[in-house]
Design a protein around this nucleic acid. Structure first.
Length: 218
DNA sequence: ACATTAAGTGATT
DNA sequence: AATCACTTAATGT
């Protein structure tokens, strides 16, 4: 994690145009801090107390949920520039430990807003309140889709959606990750991923290499 | 050349 | 789809 000195107001106007109030923009610039994380770096671990809400300016992050039992975890969703982590809001305001783990997928820049401000802005700025509500709504929908997926759909469709989402959030179509890492994200075995990718590459949906996968759409 | 790690495969449950 | 056991292929030292 690295602190950066950049013009926060510009970042906000560029990536969060919905936060339109001038005063709000100034407050974000005043209280916010810009951090940069490298690919694979953990932003928030399980059980850590969150003291900031992140506004993602560049890059993308994975949001993982840990299973009750040891070691197992599963990818809940991906967040990209212009978004924020809705879990942070509740964790911050209730002063609770994080129930999730977030990790940078690629080089990611974000503005950290201290909790004190997050709370007071809710009543003072309409656009902030709307932003928080919209974030919740979007994430709720995503979670419902996630539940549908793991209960009703086969692994083949889950894998396709996983690759689609990676493409959408990162903007790339080639990803540097191992099949073991994909298996971990989806909480399935590596062998299952290997066999599925083989079939998908025969169908021309994907191109596989060592440590590298290219989504060819379809 | 050798060791290590990623990926492919068949058999079994 | 998981687990196991094993092979093959790619990479690093």
């Amino acid at each position: 994690m690295e602190k950066l000195s950049v013009d926060i107001s510009t970042l906000v106007r560029q990536h969060f145009p919905q936060l339109a109030e001038r005063d709000l923009q100034e407050e974000i610039a005043k209280h916010g801090m810009v951090y940069q994380f490298q690919a694979g770096e953990v932003i928030m671990g399980y059980g850590s107390y969150i003291k900031m809400v992140p506004l993602i300016v560049e890059g993308s992050i994975k949001v993982m949920r840990e299973d009750e039992q040891e070691g197992k975890e599963i990818l809940l969703y991906l967040l990209q520039a212009g978004e924020t982590c809705s879990m942070s809001f509740t964790c911050c305001m209730m002063n609770k430990k994080s129930a999730i783990r977030t990790e940078a997928v690629e080089t990611t820049t974000l503005i950290g807003i201290p909790i004190q401000q997050v709370d007071s802005w809710m009543t003072r700025y309409q656009s902030w309140k709307n932003f928080v509500m919209m974030t919740y709504d979007a994430r709720m929908l995503e979670l419902v889709r996630f539940i549908d997926q793991i209960t009703f759909q086969g692994l083949d469709q889950r894998l396709e959606l996983y690759l689609r989402r990676l493409q959408k959030t990162t903007g790339n179509q080639t990803f540097s990750l191992t099949q073991q890492e994909i298996a971990k994200d989806l909480n399935v075995t590596r062998e299952a991923i290997s066999r599925l990718l083989k079939r998908m590459s025969e169908l021309g949906k994907v191109k596989v290499g060592r440590n590298q996968i290219t989504w060819l759409g379809g």
